[in-house]
Amino acid sequence: MTEKEREILMKHYLNPKNRNMPHDNYEKVNSRNESCIDNINLYIKWNKDILEDIVFDGEACAISIASTSIMIENLIGKTKKEAEEYINNFTKMLQNEDCFLPKEAEIFKNIPEARKICATLPYIGIKKAILKK
């Protein structure tokens, strides 16, 4: 991981976007990894098939929190189809395949292999929400 990538990660960990925000009438999904103690709730507001707003709360490691913050920033405003494409690309990137990812998500490309599961934490929840839609 480069120094620049580390800086981005720490920025999102120490001051995550969209954390602990109001979420009245939002749809709630839980994200947790079986192998660790990370535990995050995502709250989603759909406008037809557009992800109008997403916020989160919970406890998790630095990589999971940063990944959640970045994912949410990148997904807000996307349609269901665009979101699915983004999620697929993120998964491919973690499997070391070439693909395009917007803003900041690419920092997880170079995290240690054993920690990639941490970066996937919020994606477990958002996939559940999209499946339900």
């Binding site: 120490l14 660790c36 103690i37 990370d38 406890e59 998790a60 490691c61 630095a62 920690r115």
Partner: peptide
């Protein structure tokens, strides 16, 4: 303060110190 327990465990692991994080 302000650091998730598992991150502390990961940090110590870099120095071959085994501790448990969680509930």
């Amino acid at each position: 303060n302000g650091i998730f327990s598992q991150d502390v465990a990961y940090y110590l692991n870099k120095y071959n110190i085994c501790v448990r994080a969680g509930n």
